[in-house]
Amino acid sequence: MPDRQLLIIDAQNDFCALPTYSYSPALAVKGAHDDCLRLARLIQQGGLAISGIIATLDSHQPLDLANAVCWRDRYGGNVPTFTAITAAEVRNGDYRPIIGVSAQDGGQFLGAYFDALEQAGRTLTLWPEHCQIGTPGHNLHPEIASALRQWSLQRLKPITFIQKGENIWTESFSALKAVFPYPDDESTQLNQDLLALLARQTEILVAGQASSHCVKETVEDLLRYAPALRDKLVLLTDCMSPVPGFENIAQQFFADMQAHGVRLASSADLLAELTD
């Protein structure tokens, strides 16, 4: 049997509208609930053909550089969620953070961070507070959690959990590294152990949320730091969805991956292979 690893990115409650649960997601991704149901079904019915499972957890604190509540406009007013802030706007005083006001608490890093964003052609998107550690929104989608428990007891193997995003000074979309690593914080550096684990696999199945952000940047980092994994990757396109308003980014991501030779497949097609 081939070594087949399932990599689940951030299949958490705060991204999923759960119709049968009394929970309101902080950052609802349209389609994420159904994505999770399809992924859970794949694990439940095809789990014997899956050698290992990695589940990442977006993990944040109330204070966070990318939380909209941590920013003010030039007049001291609140800044709307999904605002994209440029380095020039920060320098001009159009926006200012309420954290990092001194070098002792990260302020010295912030200037360099925005310089790096600018050089990379990126902006800082301000998000609603989501996946707060210790809240229901941080938990895995209940059907995914149930499927993972069943798989673990059936295969007598533990799930590998990876938390990302706990450092409040840098963004962490990718499961491999922060956008720009924070000095002396190993959790924000390139995860060499994860790369080594994936390199030993015959096939790497990728699912989760969201195709426009965390899935996208994880896969792009995999190709950047371990290009030999390209032929092992399988993106389960019906087990991931984009953040509303960012659909074009997800579409371009899929097109780019196809152009690079990465396989795109549906969960139904893959399940047929796993149970053949």
Rank of each mutant, 00 (worst) to 15 (best):
3 D>F: 08
8 I>H: 01
9 I>V: 15
10 D>R: 04
15 F>P: 04
15 F>M: 07
16 C>Y: 03
19 P>Y: 11
20 T>H: 15
25 P>K: 06
31 G>N: 02
34 D>P: 01
35 D>F: 00
39 L>A: 03
42 L>Q: 08
45 Q>R: 14
48 L>M: 09
50 I>C: 09
51 S>V: 01
51 S>Q: 13
53 I>N: 07
54 I>F: 12
58 D>C: 10
62 P>T: 03
62 P>L: 13
62 P>Q: 11
63 L>R: 03
64 D>N: 14
65 L>Y: 02
65 L>C: 06
66 A>G: 05
66 A>Y: 03
70 C>L: 02
75 Y>G: 09
77 G>K: 08
77 G>N: 14
77 G>W: 00
80 P>A: 12
86 T>S: 15
89 E>Y: 00
101 V>D: 12
106 G>E: 03
108 Q>R: 14
108 Q>N: 14
111 G>Q: 12
113 Y>H: 05
113 Y>E: 03
119 Q>Y: 03
119 Q>T: 12
121 G>C: 15
123 T>M: 08
123 T>P: 00
125 T>W: 08
125 T>N: 05
128 P>C: 15
129 E>Y: 02
131 C>P: 15
132 Q>D: 05
133 I>L: 14
133 I>G: 10
135 T>D: 11
136 P>M: 09
140 L>P: 00
140 L>E: 00
140 L>N: 02
141 H>D: 09
142 P>R: 05
142 P>V: 00
149 R>V: 05
150 Q>N: 10
152 S>T: 07
153 L>Q: 14
156 L>A: 05
159 I>H: 01
162 I>M: 06
162 I>C: 07
162 I>Y: 06
168 I>D: 00
168 I>E: 02
168 I>R: 01
168 I>T: 02
172 S>D: 07
173 F>A: 10
174 S>Q: 02
175 A>H: 01
176 L>T: 01
177 K>E: 12
177 K>H: 13
178 A>M: 07
179 V>S: 15
180 F>Q: 09
182 Y>Q: 06
184 D>I: 00
188 T>A: 10
188 T>H: 09
193 D>I: 08
195 L>P: 06
198 L>C: 09
200 R>Y: 00
200 R>F: 00
201 Q>H: 11
203 E>C: 14
203 E>Y: 09
203 E>W: 10
204 I>K: 15
206 V>S: 11
209 Q>M: 10
210 A>Y: 06
212 S>P: 04
215 V>Q: 04
216 K>F: 01
216 K>A: 07
221 D>I: 04
223 L>D: 04
224 R>N: 04
227 P>F: 00
227 P>E: 04
233 L>I: 11
234 V>M: 10
236 L>P: 08
237 T>W: 08
239 C>F: 04
243 V>R: 10
246 F>L: 14
248 N>W: 11
248 N>D: 15
252 Q>L: 12
254 F>G: 11
254 F>T: 10
255 A>W: 05
257 M>V: 06
260 H>F: 07
262 V>A: 08
263 R>A: 11
264 L>N: 13
264 L>V: 09
264 L>Q: 15
272 A>S: 13
273 E>N: 12
